[in-house]
Design a protein around this nucleic acid. Structure first.
Lengths: 346, 346
DNA sequence: GCCCGTTATGCTCAAGGCTAGAATAACGCA
DNA sequence: TGCGTTATTCTAGCCTTGAGCATAACGGGC
C-alpha cells in the first residue's frame, strides 16, 4: 500500500529588536527532542486554498500573529528528513520566510522570540570574527579535513571549508549561511548531525548551495568521521531540520537586502539613518562604513526625511526618515547595497 | 473525507543549441489542452528517496536523459492550479531547473527540444526590442492600464508595467522574467489566462516577485478586464502552469549566471570566448560588449586557454578555452557578470 | 558659560571598475 | 594583394566605492 504524502508548512518569522535579529519559536517541537521549533503545521487540502494562506493560518493559530511580508524559501522532501518509519506518511516541508515589525508579540501563545545568533553564532561578525570561530569551529574543521584520506578528498574538504568560512584568499561571504551550516552538519559539528545519526544518509541539495559540478554526487557522508566535535555541537539546536531552514532564511534575507527594500518591513514607520544601518548590520552580521552607507541610501532615494528629529541619540539629534514606497516603481532593484565591511577586522 | 495530497515533480530542462536556448518538452501535456508540457510526474513516496531523485527518475523515464546540474525552483500549491475538481487529490508542484549539454537528445521518447523564446518571445532582445513588444504587448498593456479606474489603481498598474517591462526611466531588467509573465497573465494577454478563466482566482505569490509592500494583497484579478488581447495571447502556451515554471526558470538562470559558473554546464568541454559570450547572450536575451566581456571572464580567472585553436571562425582563429573548475574553491561568487548592454538600442 | 564626548552630516580624494571604442593581428577568399 | 571577418590588446573618460577629515549640534560635567 503506497504511503500518503503530507505537506508541512514551516515559517521562519524574523524581527529585529534592539540590535538583535530574532526568530519566533514554539516550544517543544515536532516530537523528537526538547529543542524549540519553528511554527509549522500540515497543509489542509480542504481548508487552505494556497500554501501561503495555510501557512498564515497555522502561524495565526500557534502565535496569534498576522504576517505581512511572506516569501517561499525552499521545499525539503528527503525521506529521512524527520526519521519517519515505514508505513507512516511521507512528509514534505515547504519553508517560508516572514518579516514582521518588532513590537507584535505573541500573547497567551506558547511562542517566544529567540536570538537568531543563538542558533548560528558564527554568523555574527559585527565585533569581528567571533572567538567561537577561531577557537572552536576552525580547529574542528581542520580536524575534519585531516580525517579525510590524503588525496583529492582532503583537498576538496579544504577547498570547501575555505570558501564557505572564508579562509586564505577567500573573503567571508555573508550570504553563504546555508553552506556553512551544511558543512558543519556533514562534519558532525552540530547537534542535529548526531541526533539524526546514521538514519540521515542522503539529502537533496538545498538552495544557495554552490559548486555546480558536484550536483551529481548525492550521497552525503553520514556524520562525524573522526572530527572532534564540540561538547554538544556548535550553536543551539532546533527541532527537526529547522536550523537548516533558519540558515536558508538568513542567507536569503542577506542576499535580498541588497536589491529589495526588505529592511523596511522590519523597521517602524520612521527611523533614523543609524537605526536603519544598525538593522542592516544586524542581519548582515557585519559592520558598515557609516558615511558610505548614508550615501548609498540617500542616493538610492530609498528614504525621505520627515523634518522631525529624534533627540535621544546621545549626541546631535538625528533626522527621522521614512521609506519612500515609490522607489519600487522607479528603479528595478532598490536595496541597501552592502558595501564591503571596513577593514576594522578585530 | 479529507482529500489526499499529491506532489508533482516538474523539470525545466534547458540546453543551448546553436544560438538558441531550448527547453525539453513532452507532447500532449497533462490532459487539458494539446499544448506541450514540461516533463513531470508524481512523487512516489515509496520509490523516491528524495525529491530530486524522483525528478531524475521521471525525466529518465520520459526522455531517456540523465540530468547533471539540477536545482529546485519553487513550489506551487494553489488549489486551482490545475483546476482540480472537488474530491480529487490536491496537487502540489515542485519545479526544478536542470541544465544539460546540447548534444544529449531524446531517442525513441516523445520528447522534443523547443526554443525557449517561442514561449516567451518578449524576452529576447538580442536584436533590440522585439517588434512584438512595441507593436503588440505595450499597446495591449496600455489598454489594460487604461481599463483600471482612474485613480491609484491605474497609477499602480502603470508603475508595475513600467518597472517590469522597462519603460520611462526604468531600464529593462533581464531577470524579471516571472514578473513579466505574471503581469501578462493578469492582464489576460496570454492564452493560459483565458484557459484558466475564472476558476483561477487567487494564487500564491511566486519567487522573484517584487514589491514587498503588496504581499498582503493576495487577490488577483481574474483575467482580461478590458484589455484587447492578441488573437490568442502572446507567445505559445504550455500545458498547466508550465509557462509560469519556465518563466521562473529563465529568470533564475539569468540571475544566477552572474555569480555562479552555470554557463559551463551548457557548453562543451572547450569553447571559444565568442561561443561563451553567445551562450550568455542567448540566455540573458541581450547583446554584450565583446571586449569588456572578455576582460571580465579573463580577469575572473574563470577559464584557461588550451593552446589549441578553432579555425572555422570566419576570420582569425580563436583560441579554445576550458572552464577552470578550481575557481569555485578560490572566489566566493564566480560568474560571468553581465555588464550593462551597450546602447545599441535598435 | 565652557570643555568634552558623542552622534549627525557634508565633503574630498584616490583607487579601481566599467563603458565605449580605437587600433592591430590573423585568417579565408576573390 | 586587397577586403571582409573575427580575435585580441589597449586607452581615455566617467562613475562608484572605500576611507577619512571637518564641522554641526546635542547633553553633561565643571
Amino acid at each position: 500500500m503506497p504511503r500518503h504524502v503530507t505537506v508541512g508548512l514551516h515559517a521562519t518569522i524574523v524581527a529585529v529588536t534592539g540590535a538583535e535579529p530574532r526568530v519566533l519559536t514554539v516550544s517543544g517541537g515536532g516530537g523528537d527532542d526538547g529543542a524549540p521549533a519553528l511554527p509549522f503545521g500540515p497543509l489542509d487540502p480542504d481548508r487552505h486554498r494556497t500554501l501561503e494562506l495555510g501557512l498564515r493560518a497555522w502561524v495565526r493559530e500557534q502565535t496569534g500573529m498576522e504576517l505581512a511580508h511572506v516569501e517561499q524559501l525552499y521545499t525539503f522532501g528527503d525521506r529521512d528528513r524527520v526519521g519517519t518509519g515505514d508505513g507512516e506518511a511521507r512528509v514534505i516541508a515547504v519553508a517560508y520566510l516572514a518579516l514582521v515589525r518588532e513590537r507584535q508579540v505573541a500573547a497567551g501563545h506558547p511562542a517566544a522570540w529567540e536570538a537568531v545568533y543563538r542558533f548560528l553564532p558564527w554568523e555574527d561578525r559585527r565585533a569581528g570574527e567571533p572567538a567561537l570561530l577561531r577557537d572552536g569551529i576552525r580547529p574542528a574543521l581542520d580536524a575534519w579535513i585531516e580525517a579525510a584520506p590524503a588525496g583529492d578528498a582532503r583537498r576538496e574538504r579544504r577547498g570547501r571549508a575555505d570558501i564557505t568560512f572564508g579562509a586564505g584568499a577567500a573573503p567571508w561571504d555573508a550570504e553563504r549561511v546555508l553552506d556553512r551550516y551544511e558543512l558543519l552538519y556533514e562534519a558532525g559539528l552540530v547537534a542535529e548531525a548526531r541526533r539524526d545519526g546514521s538514519t540521515a544518509a542522503a539529502r537533496d541539495r538545498t538552495p544557495g548551495a554552490g559548486a555546480s559540478g558536484r550536483s551529481a554526487r548525492l550521497q552525503r557522508e553520514p556524520a562525524a568521521e573522526g572530527a572532534a566535535p564540540g561538547p554538544a555541537g556548535f550553536g543551539a539546536p532546533l527541532a527537526l531540520d529547522h536550523r537548516r531552514i533558519l540558515a536558508t532564511a538568513l542567507g536569503r534575507l542577506r542576499g535580498k537586502l541588497k536589491y529589495r527594500p526588505l529592511v523596511f518591513e522590519l523597521l517602524p514607520e520612521t527611523f533614523t539613518l543609524l537605526h536603519l544601518q544598525r538593522t542592516v548590520e544586524t542581519l548582515a552580521g557585519v559592520r558598515l562604513h557609516k558615511q558610505n552607507f548614508r550615501r548609498l541610501v540617500e542616493r538610492g532615494a530609498l528614504v525621505e526625511g520627515t523634518g522631525r528629529f529624534e533627540p535621544a541619540t546621545g549626541g546631535r539629534p538625528a533626522e527621522l526618515f521614512r521609506f519612500r514606497r515609490a522607489v519600487q516603481h522607479e528603479r528595478p532593484a532598490p536595496g541597501v547595497g552592502l558595501p564591503g565591511l571596513p577593514s576594522s577586522g578585530s
